[in-house]
């Protein structure tokens, strides 16, 4: 670069200015990229679920573009897609009168036992021959879906814990 810069030795102990700088950087990082509310609770719930079920294939959330700004509370439907080797599951979450309505679609289309696990219990349904299922009036909060083919073949699959 050829530019004259003040050099600071990396091997010196941190001084007061370093500490102030790190504290400020910490505040900046926490402001622009806050830890999502309830993340630790969802992690603890995921640990609980992991202890309940074994031999699950974990589905991975497909990345959707992030909104440019966060924190806006729009009350519209949101679609999340999860995928792994045996199948892809797309769910649309929309607010209903008595809670969240979950519209799900499993591909390839197959009849499945669908269980939605929540910290205070589980809700069950079954998908139709087109792989579609609906769960109505689900309370908000952390939840994870576990799907198992109704004919008993293949492994059960589960989604990460998401916030409904």
């Amino acid at each position: 670069m050829g530019m004259v810069m003040t050099e600071y030795s990396p091997d010196e102990p941190m001084d007061a200015r370093d500490r102030t700088l790190l504290a400020r950087l910490g505040r900046v990082v926490r402001t622009v990229d806050p830890v999502p509310d309830g993340l630790a609770d969802r992690a603890l719930f995921a640990i609980t679920l992991d202890g309940l079920e074994s031999e699950l294939v974990e589905l991975v959330r497909l990345q959707t573009p992030e909104p440019a700004l966060r924190g806006e509370e729009t009350v519209t439907a949101r679609t999340v897609t999860f995928t792994a080797d045996p199948c892809t599951v797309m769910i649309t979450l929309s607010p209903g009168a008595g809670g969240i309505r979950v519209d799900g679609w499993i591909a390839p289309a197959v009849r499945c036992d669908v269980a939605l696990f929540r910290p205070d219990g589980e809700i069950r349904t079954e998908s139709d021959d087109e792989g579609c299922f609906v769960l109505e009036d689900v309370p908000t909060g952390p939840a994870s879906l576990v799907l198992r083919r109704s004919d008993g073949t293949g492994p059960a699959v589960s989604t990460p814990v998401i916030e409904l």
């Binding site: 810069m5 091997d11 102990p13 941190m14 001084d15 790190l22």
Partner: peptide, 21 residues
């Protein structure tokens, strides 16, 4: 981590130099 404390490390040193500029 030394007897005196935690060293600044090259990244923090670099950030300080960039801020000075």
């Amino acid at each position: 981590v030394t007897a005196v404390g935690v060293t600044r490390g090259r990244c923090l040193a670099k950030l300080r130099a960039l801020l000075d500029q």
